[in-house]
Design a protein around this nucleic acid. Structure first.
Lengths: 339, 339
DNA sequence: CTGTTAGCGCATTCAA
DNA sequence: TTGAATGCGCTAACAG
């Protein structure tokens, strides 16, 4: 029969007014200790659950925040969602994870609809939605606070959390150079993602520091997915003078590279070094020796949620990356490959 | 300035009553064609977005459904969420994807809270939440319609969608037997999941039909994750008489097996056949020749959502599986391994 | 086919 | 420290 006790029922049972129950619910001060106890007892007796809908309608905050994303990597989104959820859980908030299509011309309208319909208190954007002009405009127009995870550029008005993609790619490239490689191929990420650009920048920088010229034929476009890694690896290895190392802009594509190498009977890491980026669990699965970059995805998401909730001044928080070297440290440099 | 037009504003602008606007909003019949057009024009002029909160409070349906899950496979949940979202999108519903912890003793309370607070119209449960008694009791107590994806047992009161796990495992085992294998190891899934049991049943059945006795030392416990696949593979391959084929209950564990095989210099599939289950993209990534079972995950999710929405009589829908054989068909049977 | 009225469950003015 | 009244934006009876 029960299953629908409302605030008035609680008030009656506790012998107080509705307003007092509301105060207890919202953790207000100025509530007598005894009164609070009575109310809490009544709430648990009745298994009272405050209706979010009613709270939204009557109040100013909904206790809901949205995570808007359009990322096709299951690993990545899994970690991002996890980080946001953990923080929301801790704060008693509801997270609305909402996928969108950044190529949709109506995405601005979609986001306006989402925010207005659900009354979310804030929004978290993950790459590449972070750099979708229509979305940013919609959120600013609606005056909703939002935080961006790994955005493409700084934004004076809103906070963001990110890692230093360029530096990480630089580190990896330098690592490969230090192993003795002189012919290092690079597979770019999806053009939609700002990180793709930054990682390329880091690759170039690493080569330059190593005194190695950037060769255009060693640069291949990819899309952060396995198949594009396969295609790019095929093209690179078909070159008259193929690279001795391939640095893919994420682990999915690195997996594609490894797959091609295996198919052609090329021993990794002895005949070909393969490096990835992101340290998804995929890295370990595909090849125990895959060297990769640890991107702290759930930590980024958690930090972003935290920034959104504290609602302080605009902050840009950088979290550290880490080079994960598995096995290939002991690899002898490919002397024979020196040009 | 705008960004907050309500139903009354629309009514005023269209020169009709709020009720009429409400009718248009809810796609009611008995609205004059002209009137409807005027209202729609007013709505789009004002960029009107009906507040879900208000609709929930006033009406009987919320237009929201919840997907409750506790599955640690990013691939799997990605597909399940995708399927549910697609169907919801098509129907104009909001999906609340909510992770839970099935080992939490208070999970019943958590689910009651979720349903009561959000007023969801229905719930989709994915394995292993499908078999969590506390959750089922909570939903029945609240009288919320729900549909289960891959439940452990039939339930007279609620609909479900599933595949025939036992038959699929049987097919795979038979396939291995037909390849000539007589020593086939099996790695079970997580004990929480009903599918783990069914797949083991299928394995036994396949062996029996092939006239092969089940050996306890060829059965290893796993947890559907990469690491447990590694551990189980290690144990199996350390046996005095190791299996010539290993059938892992899902692709993540199969990836672990492949990783171990590679680490030990065991050629797959020539010296060891490895079979997986689920056909996550991981299968192709790890090893192009991994034979696996295609579980139609997003289709299951979509079908489940559909069943929930049509709200008809209890139905139990089985979707077909498919044996995905990659490369190992041409593998010569391991004659030398016959006992 | 259309309009009027009365709440849904809660937070939020104001008073006491 | 507490309580009474008002309304958030919408739908659901009931009229017309």
């Amino acid at each position: 029969m029960s299953g629908r006790a409302n605030i008035r029922d609680v008030a009656d049972r506790a012998g107080v007014s509705v307003k007092t129950v509301s105060r207890v619910l919202n953790d207000h001060k100025y509530v007598g200790a005894l009164t609070r106890q009575k109310v809490q007892a009544a709430m648990s007796d009745l298994d009272f659950r405050p209706s979010v809908a009613a709270r939204i309608l009557a109040g100013t905050k909904s206790g809901q925040i949205a995570l808007i994303y359009d990322n096709h990597s299951p690993y990545y989104m899994n970690r991002i969602q996890l980080g946001c959820w953990q923080r929301c859980q801790a704060e008693g908030l509801r997270l609305l994870a909402q996928p969108v299509d950044v190529t949709d011309l109506d995405i601005g309208s979609a986001v306006r609809g989402l925010v207005r319909e659900t009354h979310v208190d804030g929004v978290i954007l993950s790459s590449p939605v972070t750099d979708c002009r229509a979305v940013l405009e919609a959120l600013e127009y609606l005056d909703v606070p939002f935080v961006r995870i790994s955005p493409g550029c700084n934004h004076a008005l809103t906070s963001s959390v990110f890692m230093d993609d360029a530096q990480a790619a630089d580190d990896m490239t330098t690592h490969l150079v230090n192993l003795g490689h002189r012919r290092i191929g690079f597979i770019q990420g999806h053009a939609n993602h700002a990180a793709s650009h930054d990682r390329l920048v880091g690759y170039r920088r690493g080569l330059e520091r190593g005194g190695i010229a950037v060769r255009d034929d060693y640069l291949r476009a990819g899309a952060f997915d396995f198949d594009s890694g396969v295609a790019a690896a095929g093209a690179l290895l078909d070159l008259p003078s193929p690279p001795t190392a391939i640095f893919a802009s994420n682990d999915d594509m690195a997996a594609g590279v490894l797959s091609v190498a295996h198919g052609r009977g090329i021993a990794v890491p002895h005949a070909l070094s393969v490096a990835g980026f992101d340290d998804t669990t995929l890295a370990r699965m595909v090849w125990p020796t895959l060297t990769t970059i640890h991107q702290p995805m759930s930590e980024l998401a958690e930090a972003a949620t935290g920034l959104l909730l504290e609602g302080g001044p605009t902050q840009h928080v950088r979290l550290p990356h880490q080079l994960i070297i598995r096995g290939s440290t002991s690899r002898p440099p490919p002397i024979k490959d020196l040009q």
